[in-house]
Simulated assay, not measured.
Amino acid sequence: MTTEFLNSTAPELRFAPDDTGVISGYAATWGRPDSFGDIWVKGCFAASLEQHRAAGTRPLLLWAHDPANPIGVWESFVEDATGLKVEGRLVLDATAGRDAFALLKAGAVDGLSVGFRTVKATALPKGGRRVEAVSLIEVSLVARPSQGAARVTSVRSESQAAGLAAYLRLAAERLKG
């Protein structure tokens, strides 16, 4: 194995401690029924997200749909080919944010669930609805999401990043010989 890459001008890997508590995932996915039989349609969040942007607001990041228990702030919402992708930051200076972070890191909780008001939906023949437009109020971290694919996919942790950085430094030192 060659060690050329160790002396190259390739970009450095850096882990920023201020990324701690950043979470991302899918709050809803297209075309899959939830436990109520509702099926989300791509574009159903677009008007609501635009209204939030125009008003300078954003949907809340709550624990289990409890408006008295915010745990962080959502920083981005994107409707992509899979669903409504979200990224936010847990408030680690608050007990609820630290607790949520600990549960996420342990794998005890990883569900996401949307709190919304229906604007437009069509009843489906076998029950449930085809949800075409909603007013998005909040996205909660939950133990059991209504839609099985609505999950946190990434949790950034300073300790995980520090551990990986230490491992990479050790590997580089060993490769140098």
Rank of each mutant, 00 (worst) to 15 (best):
L13W: 12
L13P: 03
R14E: 15
F15A: 10
F15M: 08
A16F: 15
A16K: 13
A16G: 08
P17E: 13
P17W: 13
P17H: 11
P17Q: 05
D18F: 12
D19H: 10
D19A: 05
D19Q: 04
T20C: 08
T20K: 13
T20N: 14
T20I: 12
G21K: 06
G21R: 09
G21A: 02
G21W: 02
V22A: 04
I23D: 02
I23K: 04
I23P: 13
I23T: 09
S24C: 04
S24H: 01
S24N: 01
G25L: 02
G25A: 01
G25S: 06
Y26T: 01
Y26M: 03
A27P: 06
A27N: 00
A28V: 07
A28D: 02
T29C: 01
W30Q: 02
W30K: 01
G31V: 05
R32S: 11
R32P: 07
P33N: 01
D34R: 06
D34I: 08
D34W: 05
D34E: 06
S35N: 14
S35C: 11
S35W: 13
F36Q: 14
F36P: 00
F36W: 12
G37E: 11
I39K: 08
I39M: 07
I39C: 09
I39S: 06
I39T: 12
I39F: 07
W40I: 09
W40R: 05
V41K: 10
V41M: 11
V41C: 06
V41D: 05
K42V: 07
K42S: 10
K42Y: 00
G43T: 04
G43F: 08
G43S: 02
C44F: 14
C44S: 13
F45W: 13
F45D: 00
A46E: 15
A46Q: 07
A46P: 01
A46V: 08
A47N: 01
A47V: 10
A47G: 00
A47I: 13
S48L: 11
L49Q: 09
E50M: 12
E50K: 12
Q51D: 15
Q51K: 15
H52G: 02
H52V: 06
H52K: 05
H52W: 07
A54R: 13
A55T: 12
A55P: 14
A55V: 15
G56R: 02
G56Y: 05
T57P: 05
R58L: 14
R58K: 14
R58W: 11
R58S: 15
R58G: 13
R58D: 10
P59H: 03
P59A: 01
P59V: 05
L60Q: 05
L60K: 10
L60M: 11
L60G: 00
L60E: 09
L60N: 07
L61Y: 02
L62T: 07
W63L: 07
W63Y: 04
W63M: 02
H65M: 05
H65S: 09
H65Y: 00
D66V: 04
D66T: 08
D66L: 07
P67R: 09
P67V: 12
P67N: 07
A68N: 13
A68S: 11
A68V: 08
A68E: 15
N69W: 14
N69M: 15
N69R: 15
P70E: 12
P70Q: 10
P70G: 03
I71C: 10
I71N: 13
G72H: 02
G72V: 01
